[in-house]
Each structure stands twice: as C-alpha cells, then as structure tokens.
Nucleic acid binder design. Sequence first.
DNA 1: TGACACTAATGGTCTAACCATTATAATGTT
DNA 2: AACATTATAATGGTTAGACCATTAGTGTCA
Lengths: 246, 246
Amino acid sequence: MNTLFHKAKQNRVYEDVVNQIQTAILNGDIEPGSRLPAERTLCEMFQTSRGTLREALRILEQKSLIEIRLGASGGAYVKNANSELMAENLAMLIQSDSVSLEHLAEFRETLESTVSRLAAERASAVDCEELQILLDQAKHYRDKGISSWNDFVRVDEQIHMTIARISGNPLYNFILRSIHDNIHRYYDRFLEVSNIELEENYQDLVNITAAIADHDKNRAERLAREHVRRFSAYMETKKRDHISML
Amino acid sequence: MNTLFHKAKQNRVYEDVVNQIQTAILNGDIEPGSRLPAERTLCEMFQTSRGTLREALRILEQKSLIEIRLGASGGAYVKNANSELMAENLAMLIQSDSVSLEHLAEFRETLESTVSRLAAERASAVDCEELQILLDQAKHYRDKGISSWNDFVRVDEQIHMTIARISGNPLYNFILRSIHDNIHRYYDRFLEVSNIELEENYQDLVNITAAIADHDKNRAERLAREHVRRFSAYMETKKRDHISML
DNA sequence: TGACACTAATGGTCTAACCATTATAATGTT
DNA sequence: AACATTATAATGGTTAGACCATTAGTGTCA
C-alpha cells in the first residue's frame, strides 16, 4: 500500500501532546476563540517539561490551529479553519521555483471558471442580491476613477470570493483564497493600472454577475475564464516590462 | 490593503532562525537530502539556546522542509518539495467538518477532467508510451483478478499522477496527490470491490489513455469526469451501507 | 565469516531560573 | 469625577546545563 499508512513513530512526547490538543480542536471540543490553559498549567496536565510542551505548541501554531499571544491574558487561543496554511504552502512552492506564476495563473483559470459555472447553477435570489450590492460598490469606486483602485480591487476580490461561496463547495473558497493571497504577494509589485483596466475589469464583473443571475452556466464559465486570462496576460506583460527595465 | 501585509512581529528569536534556514532551503543554497549541522552546532552558529533552536526545527519539520532522524548520523535532513503539507491541511479541513468527502469528490472531478484535457492537448509520443506501459501493468493485474486489487489500485494511481504530470503544470500534481491521499485515508475503510468494479475501472483507464493519445481533449475531459463521478458515487453507496449497518 | 558488544554522535527530555510583554488594578493628579 | 500614571502579576520567551534514548559504525571474539 502506497499512501494508506504513514510511519509509526509516536515515541516523541511532544507529538502525543500535539495529537491530543489537535484532536480536541478539530472535534470541536474546544471552541474557536477560547484559550488553552497557561503553559505551566499544561505542563502539569500532560506531565511534561515546559520545553517539550512548547515544541508541541510551536507545531500547533504552525498548523494554524492556535495563535499565541504575549503578556498577561496571553496564551494559546484556538483559531477557526482558514486558508493560511494552504497559502503559505503555495508560497513555498513558488519561492522554490517548483511552481511558476504562470502555473498559478493557469490553475486559477480552472478554478474561477468552475466556481462561476457552479454558482450559475446554484445561485439563489438572495445570493444574487448580495452580488448586486457588491457590484454597486464596485461601480461606485469605478466612477471615482483610478485613485480608488485599491478600494475597487478589494471589492473585486470580495465578489470573487462570494461567487466561490455560492458554488456551495467550501474547498473552492479555501483554495481560491490562498491563490489570491499569493497572486497579490507576487504580482502587486508590478501593478500599474489605468482607467482602461479599471473599466475593463468592472465590465467583466457586470457580465459574470449577470450570467450567474441568468443561471447561464456556460456563459458564466466562459466569461470567468476570459476574465482571468486577460488579467494574467496583462500581469505577465507588466512583469516582463518591469524585468527588462532592470 | 487586505492581504498584502501580514503582521510584523519578528521579535521572537526562533522565527528569525526559521526564516534564515527556510530561505536557504527554498533558494536552493542547501541541497535536498543534505544534512544541517547538529543541534548543538547550530546553537553556536545562531547564538541561541538549544530550546529555542529546537522550536525552530519543529516549525521547519512541520513545514515539511526538513526531516529529523534519530541516533548517530541523525539530524535535520533537507527534504524535496512535496504534497505532504497540503494533504495534511486537507485532512484537517475534513476532520473539522469544514469540508465533506462530497466536496472533495466534486473538486476531484474538476481536477481530473482538467488535467486529462490538458494532457490530451500536450502529450508527447514519449508520454503516451509511458502511459501505455502503465496500462499494460494494469491489464496484468486485472487479468489476475480481484486478489490483485491492491496492486491494480497502485498502478491506477500512478496513471492518474502521470496524466497530471503530462498536463505540464506541477501545481496539479501537488494538489491531486494530496487529494488522492485523503480519499484513501477516508474511503479505504469502506472499500469492498468485485470483479465488476475492477473491469469497469480498467476500461475507464483504457478509454482515457486512448483519448489522450488521440489528442481528443473533449473526450478525455468527459471520460475523466465520468470516471471520477462513477467512483465517487460507488464510494458513497458503500459508505452509506456501512453506516446503516451500525 | 558472522554474531555480538562497545563506543560515540546525535536527538529527546527535564529542571530551574530569569527576561520581556501586557492587561489589569492601584494610585495619583487635576 | 475623570483622566493619566505607575505598580503588579500573569503569561510567554529565553537560557544553561544536565541526563536519557536511539542508532551507525567499529571492534572483538567464537
């Protein structure tokens, strides 16, 4: 069997501590937002030294299961499920050149077109209203022109994430969020836009939203794909310009 | 800005140690497979205590950047980029009920159909030969019947991952691998197959491979989607049977 | 030649102390 | 009374030094 079993160490004390706490968190036995006992208290509970316990806490922190705050009323606070870990993992793959920005863009094309298609199939009236409200905000910032670009981008992103939510599959949310994080992390330094891109982007959003409201899944899929492709192509151009300028 | 910046702590010593080592690994300054100096040596290099250094090592280990072995000639060995972290992240999302197995199956449908389409577009003659060799192995195990199911599954998986590789986008490899890991982790306990499934599965592989060799991207995409959907539906049935039996 | 014991290098754990940060309470000032 | 300041105590961050457990390599002996 290839992947069914993983090596059976489990001799290291801190791993047992990690497992116990992680299980409690994932099972929902500990509420997100609540605080674990102080380190010295946990030491007594697990009968370990502080060093060993802290190694366990470091692991849980790296897994994004807890967040550790300093000072009085500090300690280990349980976090909600989020896309941090996935985003960091992606970032490492990019930084090690195992995955290029072009690969990322191609994958994003698949994702955005898929969620748009699903959203067109599954959107309720309430979903469409929510999209419309966001679209009105986007219109507002478009009308204010290029100076509001940052605000526009924020709404643009919200619309994308809302479409992902409407798709009904939270996995798309997590992955799309982590991809957006990385696109910003690596592309924003080349970012330089004019009113043309602003207008183009806005029109794309209008069209995609309309297609979703019409439950026209094929159109929604195609428009989303084109939207992403245009954005990626534009970014690649800018990146090349930027690099050739050096 | 929403995601551009992340909190600027960097007062914790072990984080600086993590950053320095991580950067060296991701930049390729340290070869995968090579060993970092012993803990006590690293302590001198970074001018930290062993406890602090070990917290840093725990984080790097959790990030799948290093692997720590015990005993003489043990220590921290640099690992290659892999899908472990992503797989573990997915597993946590599932365990916390943030993502269901149905969500996972739907996402897999998207992925497998996309990579099959891309593979049909991009497969070289050599790629097709490689697929053919794997297909011959699959045939061998099919002919031996249900007793070789495990071997058959192993080859089946290899074929899927090879198709992902042929797609030319390593991101698909990483993500698909992590999905397969989780499908096995959660579905295998319900697994119970007959010669019918074995034969069906084999025929699917034959057809998909043929479509890729023909560069018929639409057919490859459709067949892969149907293949995954059939498998998922079958697994869901088994799961329900299993649960209702309790 | 093979089985066994020894050795040394390395990670794993423990203890006990002190430093740094911060929410809260106590105190002082206007 | 309201606000600013200071002290307090709880909590995580770091250090030092010791000892235990595991394991590859070496040497020894039958």
